[in-house]
Design a protein around this nucleic acid. Structure first.
Length: 484
RNA sequence: CGGGGCGUGGCGCAGCCUGGUAGCGCACACGCUUGGGGUGCGUGUGGUCGCCGGUUCAAAUCCGGCCGCCCCGACCA
């Protein structure tokens, strides 16, 4: 071994951004592409997205929304119909000016989001209150010409899910907005094992064109916050712009009340930054495309035969129990190499089978969520699937518990502006700051400019009042943090 | 767009100051060896030195211009 350091990724504590990139490349989740700001999702990375997507898709459908697909190209004039929307998105639009070798009569926008084109269609589909609520979701790509990009967190093109609903009443639309926020929150915590705070966005952080934006926010391993999903109450802004109206039960023409909500491939970045360690990725079992990997160990030819036979029957048993399992029978790579390789890729459980285990009728289980080798346990072959199921549950819960503890340790209450400023000093994050804010954008701007922390969420629950940390006027409880 | 850095096999770099026809590590291929925490040895594949021009008998190296990329600051799921 020439240099052991070369085989390791940049330590997380030393350079978080370097560590993040190393893990993505070494775990083969994604790669850079020839197009600036765009990445390639490699099979291992895309498999995580698929697992996440499939589960969220089930949960979305349970709310009554149905999947549809709208075009990627949007007439330029559509974007301009809603004043705040056009103002919010204009700088980051990709515009198609030519097609079929000719200049287009009207340029086409590559969708940055689909509110406008969906409203155009909704206006034609909705006539009566009997057509409502109308709830559609689409899984697609969107393009936003960002100045600075980071793999998964902010790329020029990204994949997401965008739900769009239209309702007869404001009350119903507001309820839908909050219901989807709760879908995202429970999905993030239960499936991805990412602890979240949630709440309302400040006016400055609100989606362009929304009346109210709600968010779920996670705290990454470096103490920075990451917006993990948003749910918007759009009021009648787009309905007015696109004349989306219906006849109510009094035969009166009304504008619909709307919502939109989305999560993106940014969640892959959150998974990495919340759970990953210096050995690489750590995937919660529920989202892990591969939940267990079997590494056979042998020395002599006859051992090889016995060990492989035992490994095969293990594989069959685990797969029959619905556990996503892989047998790593590669020759010419040592077991030690395989251990490190699969740890880098975040597989929750490694099953080691060697001659000693075959003789004893058992296997060794090594869990990815606990680093020390002492955490290896022996499991009898006959009881393997139930032991595995139990272990996977335990790992899922433990990863969530670890992340929650990390978040709690990095959450601080401030009632003194100077203390907040000191906490946010320096590079990297400063954790979550819980404070009181009067709601005045001027105070928010001052915090942002002086501490680089922004308002992440104004909680809906456990609200409390106190003097604004900046100006001292009566304020509400809010979370501030430096964010991605 | 302002500030800093860099372009040399797939990746990371040395060579440049003091011109003389390209080298190291990793990866990759093959063979043997090894195998319960990144095994070792050997052999081998692979480069118009970012591009254009100039100086020179001779340019990766010196000079001029251009291009591209990365990092740091102002927008954002």
């Amino acid at each position: 071994m020439a240099d052991k350091q070369e085989k390791k990724v940049t330590p997380r504590s030393q350079d978080f951004a370097g560590w993040y990139n190393d893990v993505i490349l070494r775990a083969e989740l994604a790669d850079y592409s020839p197009v600036r700001g765009c990445i390639v999702f490699r099979p291992d990375g895309f498999a995580i997205w698929e697992a996440l997507r499939d589960e969220l898709d089930r949960r979305i459908k349970r709310t009554g929304a149905r999947n549809a697909y709208f075009p990627m190209f949007i007439p330029q004039s559509f974007i301009a119909r809603e004043a705040e929307h056009v103002e919010g998105f204009s700088p980051e639009l990709a515009v198609v000016t030519h097609g079929g070798g000719k200049e287009l009569e009207e340029p086409l926008i590559v969708r940055p989001t689909s509110e406008t084109i969906i409203n155009h269609m909704f206006a034609q589909w909705i006539h009566s209150h009997r057509d409502l609520p109308l709830m559609v979701n689409q899984w697609c790509n969107v393009v936003r010409w960002e100045m600075r990009t980071r793999m998964f967190l902010r790329t020029t093109e990204f994949l997401w899910q965008e739900g769009h609903t239209a309702h007869a009443t404001q009350t119903e639309a507001e309820a839908e907005t909050l219901k989807m926020l709760e879908v995202y929150r429970t999905f993030g915590e239960e499936f991805l094992a990412i602890p979240l705070i949630w709440g309302r966005k400040s006016a400055a952080e609100r989606f362009a064109g929304a009346v109210e934006t709600y968010t779920i926010e996670g705290l990454m391993g470096d103490g920075r916050a990451l917006q993990c999903g948003t749910s918007h109450f759009l009021g009648q802004n787009f309905a007015r712009a696109f004349n989306t109206r219906f006849l109510d039960d009094n035969n009166e023409l009304q504008f619909v009340w709307q919502t939109s909500w989305g999560v993106s491939t940014r969640l892959l970045g959150a998974l990495i930054m919340v759970h990953g360690d210096d050995q690489g990725l750590r995937l919660p079992p529920r989202v892990a495309p591969m939940q267990a990997v079997i590494v056979p160990i042998w020395r002599k030819a006859e051992e090889r035969e016995q060990v492989l036979a035992a490994a095969q029957s293990c594989l069959a048993a685990l797969q029959a129990a619905g556990i996503r399992t892989h047998l790593d029978a590669r020759e010419g790579v040592t077991p030690g190499f395989k251990f490190n390789d699969w740890e880098m890729r975040g597989v929750p459980v490694r099953v080691e089978i060697g001659p000693r285990d075959v003789a004893a009728g058992s296997v060794i289980l090594a869990r990815r969520d606990i680093a020390s080798k002492e955490a290896k346990v022996k499991a009898p072959l006959g009881d393997l699937t139930s032991a595995m199921n139990k272990l996977l549950d335990e790992i899922q819960n433990n990863l969530f518990a670890q992340a929650r503890a990390a978040m709690a340790a990095e959450t601080r209450t401030f009632d003194n502006y100077e203390a907040l400023r000191r906490q946010m000093e320096g590079e990297g994050g400063g954790g979550l700051a819980e404070l009181h804010w009067c709601g005045d954008p001027a105070c928010e701007t001052r915090i942002r400019e002086e501490t680089r922390a922004t308002c992440r969420a104004i909680p809906l629950e456990r609200q409390s009042t106190g003097p604004c940390i900046v100006c001292g006027k009566p304020g509400q409880r809010a979370f501030f943090a430096k964010a991605y």
